[in-house]
């Protein structure tokens, strides 16, 4: 038996994602720069996986090729952008990307029955579905206190602390790329969970998980 994850996205503009994004902006989640939504399916399948994948993506119940695209892989591309700062010298900044899956606590069996009984997918043993939200957070230029707190939290060496102390304010605002990314990814995950609790799911009948 094997696991097959399938992500189905709209090719056309996703009004739900747009509305969610606009609502989150109204709720002051300014660090969120982009929001995508997809249907998520996880099949436990026996038998030939390649054949299953070929067949399932032709099922018009799950995918309408006129408006959907699909993949069997969670890892999409991480957006990069030129932020136009750093004295005009172009630097590329990777956005922190968080995949957050929202699922109902009582997953409906309706789709599984349809696939098995009407469409002949007798090799599906289990099906989970949910909504996959992909959130992109832009690294922000943190206040110096945040950056120092990050250094302390991460038990930086005295030498590095001194280095930080000695840097000009401007430079401290733009720490080395990898550190900035670590700092923000941690922060981004917290914000993503907060967004889930405040808008994307109701914990009285749903749950969320951050997919790594």
């Amino acid at each position: 038996m094997a696991n097959v994850e399938m992500i189905v996205r709209l090719k056309v503009p996703d009004n739900v994602a747009i509305t969610a994004f606009n609502t989150l902006k109204r709720m002051n989640y300014t660090a969120l720069k982009k929001l995508e939504r997809a249907d998520y399916y996880k099949f436990d399948v026996s038998g030939n996986i390649a054949q299953f994948k070929e067949k399932i993506c032709k099922t018009d119940i799950i995918i309408n090729p006129n408006k959907h695209e699909y993949s069997f892989n969670l890892n999409g591309t991480i957006n990069e952008k030129n932020d136009g700062k750093n004295n005009g010298k172009a630097i590329k900044i990777k956005m922190a990307k968080i995949n957050l899956l929202v699922q109902d606590l009582d997953n409906s069996l309706g789709l599984l029955l349809t696939l098995k009984e009407r469409l002949g997918f007798s090799n599906i043993i289990k099906l989970e579905k949910g909504v996959l939200w992909t959130m992109y957070f832009e690294p922000k230029f943190s206040p110096i206190e945040d950056w120092r707190k990050f250094c302390n939290d991460n038990q930086r060496t005295k030498q590095n602390d001194a280095k930080v102390q000695g840097l000009s304010t401007e430079l401290i605002k733009i720490p080395p790329f990898y550190e900035r990314r670590n700092f923000y990814s941690r922060d981004a995950e917290k914000i993503a969970e907060d967004i889930a609790k405040n808008l994307l799911m109701n914990e009285n009948f749903q749950r969320y998980v951050v997919l790594k």
């Binding site: 509305t19 609502t23 109204r26 994307l200 799911m201 109701n202």
Partner: peptide, 16 residues
């Protein structure tokens, strides 16, 4: 309201 986007009622619930 709002086509039941995300969950029925949730977008209106966040309106000012």
């Amino acid at each position: 309201s709002y086509e039941d986007r995300i969950r029925a009622g949730v977008i209106a619930a966040k309106e000012k």
